[in-house]
Simulated scan of single mutants.
Amino acid sequence: MIRKLTENDRAALMELLLTEPALNLFIIGDVENFGFEQDFMELWGDIDPASGIIQAGLLRFYDSYLPFAGGPFEEKALAEIITQDPKFSMLSGPADIVHKISRSISFRKEKQLHFAELKNISKPLLEAVSSGAPIRKATVDEVEAVCRLTDQITEFESNRESSRKSLKKTLESGTGRTYYLEHEGQVIATASTTAENSRSAMVIGVATHPDYRQQGLATRLAAQLCADVLNEGKSLCLFYDNPKAGVIYKRLGFQDIGNWAMMYT
């Protein structure tokens, strides 16, 4: 049985989501930050009629949809909810769940990424943060300086205005943090988290200026960032599709836990 979820379903929903806090971090964060009564956000649950347990469901955040599941679910029913939305533009989530729903929807493009998680501080991670130039934590005053660096990173797909708005909003709301290193007043390396919630956070935006690469700067920043978040009792996760980046993250203790699919209409 599929129905809209309300505040009365919070405990049951969280019970399911927290079985996989890394894979479900976006939904956990959105529920913690926005609740259930927002125009830009809706939640549906696939509920077992016999037990009343939420076994799967779907989040709408603006024009994007993100499914979650703890077992078998009504794939076609969730797909029908999505296709009834004329503004629908993207379906993303754990690849196995997304691909089941996508059987009933036509998509123009698919992108798939590796999904990795870090739960404990490793020895290599501690060694990476042991020495070096002072690491700084960005405030909204450093948004422009940080974005001047990320503007130069060809792998990052965002425009100048949106990247600045996004970083500013994240820092103001406390749903993420950004660490950086500078040289002669210029930001030369950075690493950030986003979608932080009470149980998990996602590492994003790990970058080094082209003139300062091969010095381990981004690795050191990512290690410090991860150590601080882990010390707060949270787990970390990240996406990657670059094998070289995957090797670096695995040295810090990240382990692959699945694939993440993004389907575009």
Rank of each mutant, 00 (worst) to 15 (best):
Q84P: 00
L78T: 02
S102C: 06
S106V: 11
H114F: 12
L91K: 07
K100M: 06
I82M: 05
S104C: 07
S89L: 06
K100L: 11
I81C: 04
I97M: 04
A79F: 03
D85F: 07
T83M: 09
I105P: 04
A95F: 03
P86K: 08
A79Y: 00
G93W: 03
K100D: 07
A77K: 14
S102Y: 00
I82N: 04
G93C: 02
E80M: 05
A77H: 06
S92D: 10
Q112M: 09
G93Y: 07
K109C: 04
D85L: 06
D96N: 10
D96G: 01
I101G: 00
L78W: 05
S89I: 09
L113C: 06
S106Q: 09
T83H: 00
P86N: 07
S106Y: 01
V98A: 09
R108D: 12
K87P: 00
I82E: 01
D85A: 02
P94S: 10
A77P: 03
K100T: 09
K109A: 02
T83Y: 02
A95K: 15
K109Y: 10
D96I: 03
E80K: 10
S102V: 02
P94L: 08
I101R: 06
A77W: 05
K109W: 10
R108M: 09
A77F: 04
A79M: 05
S92C: 12
I82R: 05
A77T: 14
M90T: 14
S106R: 12
A77R: 14
E80W: 00
I81M: 03
D96H: 12
A79Q: 04
D96E: 10
K109E: 11
H99M: 11
P86H: 07
L113V: 06
S104D: 05
G93F: 07
Q112G: 00
R103S: 07
I105E: 01
F107N: 06
Q112D: 04
D85T: 01
A95V: 08
H99S: 11
I81V: 10
H114L: 09
L91I: 08
S106T: 13
I81E: 02
I101C: 03
I81G: 05
L113E: 15
S89C: 10
S89T: 11
L113M: 14
K109T: 08
F107M: 10
R103H: 12
A79C: 02
L78G: 01
Q112A: 08
I81T: 01
E80F: 02
A79P: 03
E110K: 15
I81Q: 04
A77G: 04
E110L: 12
I97N: 07
S104Q: 13
R108S: 12
S89P: 02
I82C: 05
E80A: 15
K87F: 05
K100G: 04
K109Q: 14
P94Q: 15
K87A: 12
H114A: 12
G93P: 04
E110F: 11
H99K: 13
S104W: 13
S89A: 14
P86S: 07
S92K: 13
L91R: 04
E110R: 15
F107Y: 14
K109F: 12
T83Q: 14
P94G: 05
R103K: 15
D85E: 01
S106K: 11
I101T: 05
M90R: 15
A95H: 08
H99A: 06
K109R: 15
P94H: 14
I105M: 03
R103A: 11
F107D: 02
R103F: 01
A79S: 08
G93H: 05
L113R: 13
E80L: 08
F88V: 08
